[in-house]
Structure formats: C-alpha cells, structure tokens
Amino acid sequence: MVKAYKQEHTYKHPWEIVTSASWRKFTDPENTQTLSHILEVETLDRSLDTTQGKLYTTRAITVHAPGPWFVRKIIGQDICHCVESSVVDARAKSMALTTRNVSLRKYLEVEEKSWYEPHPENPEGWTVCKQETSIKIKPLSALATMAEKVEQKCAEKFLQNSVKGRVVMERMCKYLESEASGFSL
C-alpha cells in the first residue's frame, strides 16, 4: 500500500536564484497566504562544512494535515509535524531535500525527496527540480481499510500544493532577479 509519484519542473532561472528562492518560500510573510497549508517553519539545526562548501539544515515544518476531511476525523488531529533535512553543495551546485512526517506515523508515512540542479540543456540559465513523493498508509491502522482512497486523496492534495509551491517559487525568483539587477553594487 504505497502511492508514489515523480514530478519534474524546470524553472527558467539560474540555480543560484532558485535555491535562494527556496529558502524564502515558506518563510517570507507574503507567501503565507498562498501556502496556507504551511502553518509554521522553524530552523532546528544548521551546520556549514567550511572545507567542502556544504550547508546542512534541519527544519521543522508544521502543516495542515494532508488528505480529506474523513482522515482528519479518524486521526483526530488536523495538523501534522514534518522534518525537512537538506544539503546544499555550493561547489557541485546541488540542493537535496528530504521531508518526512514525524507525527501521525502510526497512520501514514509520507516522504518527499527533492533535488534542485542546473538544467542540463541550459546549466547557467535554468534549474530543474525533481521530486519523488511516497505516501504509505500503515497496514494495521484505522485508515488501512480505505488505504487506497486515502493515498489517492493525499496524492491529489500534494499535487495541488506543489502547484501552489511553484507559483510562490516563480514569484520569489522574479523578486530576487529584479533585486539583483536593480540594486546590485
């Protein structure tokens, strides 16, 4: 009982802009309305490998519980806590993120892996974001009998949210580009 899907999206902006935007995606106040399912984001840990140029970050992300209303009814909760671990390799121009839920794990396990890398066809100008999501309902949980439906609904919800996420990313990229061209020293 696992629902898995992959997505790929090309941002027509350089990797530096896109990864800068991704740090602002959840935290800039103007995005909270669009991304209303993200309730809170806190940075728990951050470390810099000063010899390799790698930045490690762990964030706590509180989201409005995924899936349809009947899931919330059964689990008796409407928020879900997730942890996002990420590594940015500045030298290799790669950003990798993994997000997992840490609460509600007796019902379901969701894992989302994302990568931002320069687009092979236009490495200086474009960035490709690859994403793999898996949603797994735990076999003996209260949700198991309707697992397929729940997984399907969750997947739909996640896809809707990733569309919103891309809208915000585009907005942040444009903002950062205008800032870079207008105010650079």
Binding site: L44, S85, A92, S94, V102
Partner: peptide, 12 residues
C-alpha cells in the same frame, strides 16, 4: 526524528 533520519545525499 532528526537524529533518526539523517541528511539526504547532495552532490552529483
């Protein structure tokens, strides 16, 4: 949870 999961792999 953070300790249990660790970091994703970066690099190419």
């Amino acid at each position: 949870a953070e300790e249990a999961f660790g970091y994703p792999s970066a690099g190419r």
